[in-house]
Simulated assay, not measured.
Amino acid sequence: MYTKNQSIRELVDKNRILIAAHRGTCGGNVVQNTCLAYKNALLHGADMIEVDASMTTDKVFYAFHNGEEPLELGIDRDIRTMSSEEVEKLFTLNSLRQVCGQKLEHLEDVLEHFRGKCLINIDRSWFYWKEIIALLDRMDMKDQILLKSGVEEELLKELEESGTGIMYMPIMKSPEEWDIIQKYDINVAAAELIFTDLDSEFLSPEFMGRLKKAGIAPWVNAITLNDEIILSGLLDDNNAIKIGFDETWGKLIDLGFEIIQTDWPALLKGYISNKSNEK
């Protein structure tokens, strides 16, 4: 359970494993990246919600993953090329491809709605880095928000120069990127590790130990985006359901991951609780 002003490290020390809900928890008439989906995720036991950010041509932020326009809005156009006036005319589609009464929600409104309620990971914001940092700084929710991006020096420099001190998580695809990150005076609170197989150096006790010694929580994406993209060496959500929780989520925990992103928070929460009760 999140308590206001608790850091990620304090929560990990308390709960051992934190659950991040990918775009909230959606299905039926609950649309991804909406307050309803995020609330649903918390009801399913998530500690953190992942919120995508997209900015319109007139610099209005929405909680939306660009590229999902055909699926979620029924249009073949990137909303980043649209004005907020155009976006406001759109209605979302539910999981049955039926038009529903829900519209895309302003990012500021989403953040305000969950002020003091949970941790919030901001994704897909590196296209408008300066603007998103300014917005998040203005919201004054530094104890809740975890901003992430790929390891690009231009982004790291901009974050350092902003002086906001916001919690940050690099998306790392190779151990060498850790050396780049350490050159910057930024508040690294977690590290998202991408690996395609279990021979990755990321999974060595030495590398995990370096992160944890620095107070950084290792994050893994157990989400299964599709049948081609591998984010966690196939120790993912689909295989958890197909093969078994011990063989997948359990292995991620044994490897030392402290934050697990999933599309099925209730299943993961139940598994973690049962494992704790067995001890």
Rank of each mutant, 00 (worst) to 15 (best):
M1Q: 11
K4S: 06
N5C: 04
Q6V: 07
Q6N: 06
S7C: 04
L11A: 15
V12M: 07
I17A: 00
H22C: 01
G24E: 07
G27D: 00
V30Q: 02
Q32H: 11
T34Y: 09
T34H: 09
L36C: 10
K39H: 11
N40L: 00
A41C: 00
A41N: 01
A41S: 07
L43Q: 14
D47M: 01
A53L: 05
T56A: 11
T56V: 11
F61Q: 02
F64D: 02
E68V: 01
E72T: 14
R77Y: 02
I79H: 06
M82L: 15
E85T: 09
E88T: 07
K89Y: 07
L90H: 11
L90F: 11
L90D: 01
N94P: 06
C100Y: 13
G101Y: 11
E105G: 02
H106R: 15
L111N: 04
F114N: 04
F114R: 01
G116C: 07
R124Q: 11
I132H: 10
L136R: 13
M141E: 04
D143G: 00
S149H: 01
E152G: 02
E153I: 01
L155V: 06
L156T: 03
K157W: 08
E158M: 13
L159S: 09
E161K: 15
G163W: 08
G165A: 09
M167S: 10
M169E: 04
I171E: 05
M172I: 07
K173A: 01
E177N: 06
N187T: 12
A189G: 07
A189W: 08
A189K: 13
A191G: 10
L193K: 12
I194G: 06
I194R: 11
L198H: 12
S200N: 09
L203G: 13
S204M: 04
S204V: 09
P205C: 14
E206D: 15
F207G: 03
M208R: 12
R210W: 09
K213Q: 12
K213Y: 10
A214N: 11
I216E: 07
P218K: 05
V220Y: 06
V220Q: 01
I223F: 00
D227N: 13
I229C: 04
L235H: 13
D237F: 09
D237C: 08
N238D: 05
I243K: 15
F245R: 12
D254C: 05
G256S: 12
F257E: 06
F257M: 11
E258Q: 14
I260A: 09
P265M: 01
L267Q: 14
L268G: 05
G270H: 00
S273P: 05
K275D: 00
E278A: 12
E278K: 14
